[in-house]
Amino acid sequence: MLLDAQTLARLKGVKLRARAVMEGVLSGLHKSPHQGQSVEFAEHKEYAPGDELRHLDWKAYGKFDKYYVKRFEHETNLRSVMVVDASSSMGYTSGALTKLDVATTLAGALCYLLVRQQDAAGLALLTGGKWKDVPPRASAGHLNVLLDTLDATVPGGGTDLGSAADHLAEVLPRRSSVIVLSDLLDEKQDALKRVLALRQRKNDVSLFHVVDPAELTFPFDDPTLFLDMEGEGRIEVNPREIKESYLEEFHAFLAQVKAACAEADVDYELVRTDERLDDVLLRYLARRGRRG
């Protein structure tokens, strides 16, 4: 199945695109990165009234003549939240798909994957400067809700990843999986820092950095009036004159983001809007698999 950007662009709606991507992924996938149903022993606790009697450790009672209760890390399935940046800048495209198209398609495909594994998947959409949450659930019916939400998303407003991170820190239980899909074009200096801080709360954080090829190569020749997609700013420049400097700045930014992610133990994936998304997901899942 052809899953290049041009082909995907012809598929209307996130549902179709996400399914197409997911099928491509499944055909190449050998092992799911998410175990689900994972129940891991964490510690013993002296029994107190109200504790589950089924968790009493009778062997420990035999040894120590005291009642101890087994405690576990998670007692439920994996909870994942797709944080999709739907700010105005995500609406940019120099080719077939906007950055938002790519982000929602990736998010949809991941939702497919998670629900298929009976993990809970949710959404946190930042659009028009407001948050729109879809709490994580593992039911198959919930998948339609997720995909419909993604399909209905239109770019708008500014980027505020920092506040998104703070919001998630409040609502998400610890050890959730947070997958951020954004172009990271946030004017606030500490936005990335606050996103990466989710990792410190024992969350599993992945970052899909979506960029357009034009942003990577700056292929403009004629004098151009650049308009800020998230504000009123505008500037008239001869692109050839600043190309070298722009590329230097932008690639330094990419390197900086990548280094920060590595330091915070956050999975970083640079996604070009013109590349095959199933490749992106396979690459991502394979890395996850290696990490165990």
Binding site: S89, M90, Y92, K99, D183, L185, E187, D212, E215, F220, D222, P223, T224, L225, F226, L227, D228, M229, E230, G231, G233, I235, E236, V237, E241, I242, S245, Y246, E248, E249, F250, F253
Partner: peptide
């Protein structure tokens, strides 16, 4: 000039400032 909405305006602005004197 041809108007062109662009996301990474901050980089364009910084580059323009960096190269302004040289240009």
């Amino acid at each position: 000039p041809r108007p062109h909405p662009f996301g990474p305006m901050a980089f364009v602005l910084r580059s323009q400032k960096r190269t302004a004197s040289r240009l």
